[in-house]
Amino acid sequence: MCDSDASYDGIFCFAVRSTGIFCRPSCSARTPKRENLRFFPDAASAAAAGFRACKRCQPERTPSAPPEWIGRLLRHLEERPAPPRAEDLCNAGIAPARARRWFRRYYGMSFRAFCEGHAMSKALDALQKGNSLDHTAAEAGFTSLSGFRDAFKRVFAQPPGAADDLECVRLRWVETPLGPMVAGASDAGVCQLSFLGESDIDAELRGLRDGLGCAVLPGRHPFLDQLQTELETYFAGQLQQFTLPLHQPGTAFQQAVWSALQAIPFGATCSYRDIATAVGRPGATRAVGTTNGRNRIAIVIPCHRVINAGGALGGYGGGLERKRWLLRHEAATASAAASAPAPSTAAAAP
Rank of each mutant, 00 (worst) to 15 (best):
A6E: 11
S7C: 13
G10C: 09
C13Q: 09
A15L: 10
S18E: 15
S18P: 08
R24E: 11
C27P: 10
C27L: 04
A29T: 12
R38Q: 15
P41V: 14
P41R: 14
A43S: 14
A43T: 06
A43L: 06
A49K: 12
R52W: 03
R56E: 12
R61H: 07
P63D: 10
A65I: 03
N91V: 13
N91M: 12
A92Q: 13
G93R: 07
R100P: 02
W102S: 09
R105M: 14
G108D: 04
A123V: 01
A137R: 02
F142V: 01
G147W: 10
R149T: 13
V155I: 15
P159L: 13
G161N: 09
V169M: 10
R170P: 05
R172G: 02
D187H: 15
D187W: 07
G207S: 08
L212C: 04
G219Y: 00
H221R: 00
Q226T: 08
L227P: 01
L227S: 02
Q228I: 04
L231H: 06
T233Q: 10
A236F: 07
Q238C: 14
Q238G: 14
Q262P: 00
T277Q: 13
T277F: 10
A284V: 00
V288S: 00
N295W: 09
I297D: 01
I301V: 13
N308I: 01
G315H: 13
Y316H: 11
G318Q: 04
E321S: 14
W325Y: 10
T345A: 15
P350N: 13
P350Q: 15
